[in-house]
Design a protein around this nucleic acid. Structure first.
Lengths: 251, 251
DNA sequence: CCTTGCGCCTCACGCGGCGTGAGGTCCGTA
DNA sequence: TACGGACCTCACGCCGCGTGAGGCGCAAGG
């Protein structure tokens, strides 16, 4: 009967944990080795097995307290624990997913800037970031999802084409505005029609989305203008001019 | 010039953070409001804007230190930061995914037990958990992936059918063994053929997978026998008997 | 004037799961 | 017996605040 018996360092090496972790497990009452006369820890077969169980349960993402419950509580509920753990994990995954969406969106904006040759200073970065979070507060999650769906449906190439067209469109409308052209003029009407068409490509004709887009732009004029590479005042003027054109058409 | 100026509580409510968080941001040097004569914090327009930037950046998953860098370091690299953050997030997602796989696998085993009417005691739960982690240490990640792929290819119904067949097969082989039937006997051969066929359904005929399966079973006899609902000694005997049958066939 | 009540202030500990020293003791081998 | 390595016990650090405790400031009502 050769009783197996490990010292901390040995057990730690075999089990793939640190000596400090074993100390900690003992401190929180999870794993209590016996001691030699000199006070050195000795881990017997029972402790080795218990440590294996501890590491296995930790690998499921359980906290040390949950592990203790699983090992010591007589009324422990395996299936329920697994289920709850799985639910918590789903919640965490959703959180990470939202974070990933934000990062990807920001990444897209940054690459778009880089492609168009605009410099990416810390300031523009902050403006873009702020605009993104502002947008989130103005759209419902379903609306955001719908916008993402539209983007996917359109495809990258189409999106880039639209992104490339926006500045030219703004410039053209601005030129008419500066020239004092009547908003009812057919040339202006054509430009504004195209404007609405481009917007429609993203909203998919959803009036709720258009409405939210409007309030978002309203609420964060500075951020939006940064997004579009325009001066805030000029942006306001452009938007007002376009609106007069739409009113003229409706009349 | 009505200078805007908020008190902590007001700003906290508007920005959707806690007063304590604002205190903390000041303590770590992120956001420094001015003070009234009585020592109360006053947040002006600049501080309000900075707080918005802080919350936006935090929403990207940046640490407070990273936020400070983004806001104060002159050589801050937006694109690189976004990219690194995204990479860190991917790593975290992978970790969660592995955890989810373990939990799902364990959940499957538990449900399978429940269906077969076996009671799920804390002990069986621990045995199953341990067997799972043991399996992970004996298979390479690619092998685990391949096993998961095979499971998916087979479909839930087929898997349940196999799971239901195993115990019957063991029982049948056990009966022959107890009866002292020669391993070379056609009846035994037929059973063992079926046995190997079932194993083959999961390994997909991959010899590496079979090899690893063998070592895993070897290394964790207690856990494996629990998994199969057999006594460890009987399991060993059954396996030895089946092996003799295979040897007889080969000869 | 004083009281009432809310909001503000400053410590300071707590959480989870250990990492990382610092300073001292024990063990096995040459 | 001397040495190096393994062991021991504190005890603080991390991250982002939450959560009191104990004490002022400020505006309105009595």
């Amino acid at each position: 009967m050769s009783e197996i018996s490990f010292r901390v360092g040995e057990l730690a090496a075999r089990a793939g944990v640190t000596v400090r972790a074993l100390h900690h497990y003992e401190a929180v009452g999870l794993l209590r080795p016996s001691r030699t006369d000199a006070g050195h820890r000795r881990y017997g077969a029972a402790e080795v097995e218990r440590l294996q169980q501890i590491t296995s349960l930790r690998a499921l993402g359980l906290s040390l307290e949950q592990v203790r419950d699983a090992l010591d509580a007589p009324d422990f509920d395996p299936a329920g624990t697994v289920e709850r753990q799985r639910a918590a994990l789903d919640a965490e995954a959703a959180r990470l997913g939202a974070l990933a969406d934000r990062l990807d969106g920001l990444g897209r904006l940054l690459r778009q800037r880089a492609r168009s040759g605009a410099p990416i200073t810390p300031d523009t970065f902050l403006a873009l970031t702020h605009a993104m979070t502002a947008i989130e507060t103005h759209y419902t999650p379903e609306q955001l999802q719908r916008l993402a769906d539209r983007r996917e449906a359109l495809g990258d190439d189409a999106i880039r084409a639209v992104e490339a067209e926006w500045p030219r469109l703004f410039e053209a409308v601005g030129a008419e505005m500066d020239a004092g052209t009547d908003p009812a003029d057919p040339a202006v009407q054509k430009l504004v029609d195209r404007w609405d068409e481009l917007v429609g490509m993203f909203t998919g004709g959803d009036p709720g989305l258009r409405q939210s887009l409007g309030t978002a732009v309203e609420a964060d004029r500075a951020g939006t203008s940064q997004l579009m590479g325009l001066d805030p005042d000029r942006m306001r003027a452009l938007f007002a001019y376009a609106q007069r054109a739409r009113d003229a058409r409706a009349a």
